[in-house]
Amino acid sequence: MRWSSLTVLSLLFSPVLPLTCYVCSSSSTNEDCSKYTQDCPAPLNTCMTTVDTLGLMKAIVKQCASQATCKGAASAASVDANGNGNRVDCCNYNMCNYSRAESVHTHTSLMLLTACVLVLQSI
């Protein structure tokens, strides 16, 4: 019984390791934006990736954020039919935001492909 009490106490007081995220202030490619990492200070518990697209220009920002901040930004983000706008992705395990910016490009490409198929079917 004594060992189980010590085990519970050690789990309660064991240090919590910080979340590690890729960070960059603004890059045009995911590769440039995924060179540096940061241990997120409390209460920042989410890796946030923002991709702003306007035509052929893209600005990617990766940072530590609180879950509430990231979810709020993600709910306000939008991309139009031309692929312009911004997208915000949130994740919460170490270095999970490495390829989040690439998924936006893939998502936009799939949207455009679907639009082209629909247009061709209506002709």
Rank of each mutant, 00 (worst) to 15 (best):
residue 1 M to R: 08
residue 1 M to F: 09
residue 1 M to Q: 12
residue 1 M to I: 07
residue 2 R to E: 10
residue 2 R to L: 14
residue 3 W to K: 05
residue 4 S to Q: 01
residue 4 S to G: 00
residue 5 S to E: 05
residue 5 S to N: 01
residue 5 S to C: 00
residue 5 S to H: 05
residue 6 L to P: 00
residue 7 T to F: 02
residue 8 V to L: 03
residue 9 L to D: 00
residue 10 S to T: 08
residue 11 L to E: 03
residue 11 L to H: 03
residue 11 L to S: 06
residue 11 L to C: 08
residue 14 S to V: 12
residue 15 P to I: 09
residue 15 P to Y: 11
residue 16 V to Y: 09
residue 16 V to D: 10
residue 17 L to E: 12
residue 17 L to V: 13
residue 17 L to S: 13
residue 18 P to T: 01
residue 18 P to I: 02
residue 19 L to R: 06
residue 20 T to E: 04
residue 20 T to C: 02
residue 21 C to F: 01
residue 22 Y to Q: 02
residue 22 Y to N: 04
residue 23 V to G: 01
residue 25 S to F: 00
residue 25 S to C: 00
residue 26 S to I: 01
residue 27 S to Y: 02
residue 27 S to G: 02
residue 27 S to V: 01
residue 31 E to C: 03
residue 31 E to I: 05
residue 31 E to V: 11
residue 31 E to G: 04
residue 35 K to D: 05
residue 35 K to W: 05
residue 36 Y to N: 10
residue 37 T to A: 09
residue 37 T to Q: 09
residue 37 T to V: 14
residue 37 T to K: 09
residue 38 Q to A: 12
residue 38 Q to V: 09
residue 39 D to K: 12
residue 39 D to T: 10
residue 41 P to Y: 04
residue 41 P to R: 06
residue 41 P to M: 10
residue 42 A to G: 12
residue 42 A to N: 10
residue 42 A to R: 10
residue 45 N to C: 07
residue 46 T to N: 11
residue 47 C to G: 14
residue 51 V to Q: 10
residue 52 D to Y: 07
residue 52 D to V: 14
residue 53 T to M: 09
residue 54 L to Y: 06
residue 55 G to E: 07
residue 56 L to M: 08
residue 57 M to Y: 06
residue 57 M to S: 01
residue 58 K to P: 00
residue 59 A to K: 04
residue 60 I to S: 06
residue 62 K to Y: 04
residue 62 K to W: 07
residue 64 C to D: 11
residue 65 A to L: 11
residue 66 S to V: 14
residue 67 Q to R: 13
residue 69 T to E: 05
residue 70 C to H: 06
residue 71 K to I: 07
residue 72 G to F: 04
residue 72 G to H: 07
residue 73 A to Q: 14
residue 76 A to I: 14
residue 78 S to R: 15
residue 78 S to D: 15
residue 80 D to I: 15
residue 80 D to L: 15
residue 81 A to K: 15
residue 81 A to P: 11
residue 82 N to E: 15
residue 82 N to T: 15
residue 82 N to G: 14
residue 85 G to W: 09
residue 87 R to P: 00
residue 90 C to N: 15
residue 90 C to V: 15
residue 91 C to S: 13
residue 91 C to Y: 11
residue 92 N to P: 14
residue 92 N to W: 14
residue 94 N to G: 08
residue 94 N to V: 05
residue 95 M to K: 13
residue 96 C to P: 04
residue 96 C to E: 01
residue 97 N to C: 04
residue 97 N to K: 02
residue 97 N to L: 00
residue 98 Y to K: 03
residue 99 S to R: 04
residue 99 S to Y: 02
residue 99 S to D: 01
residue 100 R to W: 00
residue 102 E to L: 05
residue 103 S to N: 02
residue 104 V to M: 09
residue 105 H to W: 08
residue 106 T to A: 13
residue 107 H to K: 13
residue 107 H to L: 15
residue 107 H to I: 08
residue 111 M to T: 07
residue 111 M to F: 06
residue 113 L to C: 00
residue 114 T to E: 05
residue 115 A to S: 12
residue 115 A to C: 02
residue 115 A to R: 12
residue 116 C to K: 13
residue 117 V to T: 07
residue 118 L to V: 14
residue 119 V to S: 12
residue 119 V to I: 15
residue 120 L to H: 07
residue 120 L to Q: 09
residue 121 Q to Y: 09
residue 121 Q to I: 11
residue 122 S to A: 12
residue 123 I to K: 05
